[in-house]
Design a protein around this nucleic acid. Structure first.
Lengths: 191, 191
DNA sequence: TGTAGTTTTTGATGTACATCAAAAGTATTT
DNA sequence: AAATACTTTTGATGTACATCAAAAACTACA
């Protein structure tokens, strides 16, 4: 098994070697170029990905046809539209790569079979949701509700100190739910 | 087993009768008066509750000592601070009842044992998270990010048509992340 | 190295909402 | 029914951000 994949899987929660070997059969390594659309609005999210190396943004398309970023993922992170993957329903959010990226993919079908077959894998998945989803998303809501634009930006920098080098100002501003102009002024110390 | 509890459990996902009977041993029916604090900031969330009948608000306490509502729960809903229950870590959000309420409670300890013991129960819990948490919370973020105060209010009314009769204007405004004055003006058609 | 395309910055103006202050309405207690 | 406390409304003013327009600074590649 690819050591990078193995370390991501085990970081979430221990899994016995026998199951790891079985899981390995279902994961496919994929590389995509910068700007590749991993998941498109309206389609069900059929894969769960692990990002070995790269960067991605999740975004909504508003009624006026504008894009609004709602999430970022970088190296060693998990990627999927959680509600769409869970229900195999059309996704509201698209996922696009912002760098050339290497990923490991498992299909919903295979994933679902592993859940049904192995109690241990179901417990592992519960940990995955708790660790990568529940905790992070509650923080995000709190930030939007309680922090000013400047505070949100400062918190993002704490979380991803090198984000300015990897992601354009426009994409960061969109994620913070402010305009490019406002973020530019925050950076210049004018707010 | 109490029929109300049974119907809530089965609504989430089917469970075999044998496990239902075992679960029943661990659930306690509780009634509390209006204003009772079910969960207090700083404590771990040690129970998962099912609300048979009643109303509750989740709130944060800001640095200036003000309270800000982040969620409501009514009849036949699930209650817990998800991140705190999952990790048994101190909660950032408190839960308070807004009406006299009847609940069923199960402790984290018992819940965890059921997860470890029964594969079926683990799969049921995954459904619970997917249905009651993932879908709802993504919506909430989208609303805060993309809708105006008025649109957020209208959407809340669609979801809970009778909320105005059960919850004070101040509590609703706080949940919508606006001031009481603004909500009053929205209601009066002045915005 | 120059030219076109993109990203970022700067300035002027507008607006959705907050804040502050007070009045009006409702519910609760005596 | 009067007194008290709480909730909701109204009005005046303030502010954090958006929007619009254009200049400046990077980036790419012919």
């Amino acid at each position: 098994m690819n050591p990078a994949l193995k370390s991501i899987l085990l970081y979430i929660h221990p899994l016995p070697e026998s199951i790891l070997e079985e899981i390995d059969l279902y994961f496919q390594e994929q590389t995509f170029p910068k700007n590749h659309l991993l998941l498109k609005e309206g389609r069900p999210c059929q894969y769960l990905w692990f990002m070995e190396k790269g960067a991605a943004r999740y975004f909504h398309t508003t009624e006026e046809g504008k894009e609004a970023n709602v999430w970022f993922s970088f190296d060693r992170d998990i990627l999927a539209s959680a509600p769409s993957f869970a229900n195999q329903s059309p996704t509201h959010e698209s996922i696009q790569l912002m760098e050339d990226s290497t990923l490991f993919a498992i299909s919903f079908h295979d994933f679902h079979r592993l859940l049904q077959k192995h109690h241990t894998f179901a417990l592992w998945y519960i940990k995955l949701i708790e660790k990568f989803y529940i905790t992070q998303i509650e923080d995000r809501i709190g930030d939007l509700q309680f922090l000013s634009a400047k505070q949100r930006y400062e918190k993002l920098l704490l979380l991803f100190p090198d984000i300015s080098n990897r992601v354009s100002l426009g994409h960061i501003a969109s994620y913070l739910n402010i305009t490019q102009e406002t973020l530019s002024r925050i950076r210049a110390g004018k707010m």
